[in-house]
Design a protein around this nucleic acid. Structure first.
Lengths: 128, 128
DNA sequence: GACCGATACTCTCCTTTGGAAAGTAGGCAC
DNA sequence: GTGCCTACTTTCCAAAGGAGAGTATCGGTC
């Protein structure tokens, strides 16, 4: 034990397992990137999102949005027009998750140089 | 625009791309779970980690640890004993990332019920 | 009236990733 | 020698993911 008090997110192992499972579903690359895109812009349509999440395929965008909708992170509004229009936006729950991830983005931005240095160092040690 | 000031993590698109790439490497399920296990216990050995990260395979544990080492998140100390012993612990950088993720765990713990409800609701709507 | 374009998917094919389980190395106890 | 311990590797197979083409709808164009 090194840091008592700070680390016991859950005392009950059943809760702990549930939290782990939830994290597993929420903490993937695409979910995070879509979350960011939606935080930045309130509401977005499907292909607009596709454009603002660099590198995502349509299949993964559909899949990620469906899963986020299922978890209650985004809402989906279909307009019966032609051409069709669908708008996605964060729910309160999704917005709160975005705020929780805010610290991670700040960490990444703050430590870009350190990470780059660590990587260069590792590569130098492993393949001289 | 909905939330000016809160969302502009990066103004420079080059930095933005770098941050996104970093997030992509750091924000995967196994990295997060290993991070949590190491936050809880200071230093851990390989198979001890395997036991405390539910469901991880040895291959993924090795791979995740190597990648985390490369990013500068964990340090690896080999003891020249028999049977062999290897200890992993978080670096300062890794610890800071753990703290940044703290908010996400709290979010997950706090909102378990809401997520569960959203999921039940979604499933009921989609497959009645 | 056949054709085109716009949008939000969906389907198919193929590559990459991930899991399960067996194998490896090296020394010590027997 | 034989077996055992740990921290990996390797192999094989199943599952996830990317690329690109296909679908449905309707209004506007020629």
């Amino acid at each position: 034990m090194e840091n008592p008090g700070h680390t016991s997110y859950a005392d009950d192992p059943k809760i702990d397992a549930l939290v782990n499972e939830t994290i597993g579903r929420v903490a993937d690359k695409w979910t995070l990137l879509v979350l960011e895109a939606l935080e930045e812009a309130g509401a977005r349509r499907f292909s607009d999102l596709g454009r603002s999440v660099p590198g995502i395929s349509q299949k993964m965008l559909t899949q990620t949005l469906r899963q986020m909708e299922r978890e209650g992170l985004v809402s989906r509004e279909v307009f019966a027009e032609v051409p069709p229009r669908v708008e996605y936006r964060l729910t309160d729950l999704g917005h709160e998750l975005g705020e929780a991830f805010c610290g991670v983005w700040q960490w990444a931005e703050r430590n870009l140089a350190r990470i780059e240095a660590a990587r260069a160092d590792y590569d130098a040690r492993k393949a001289p």
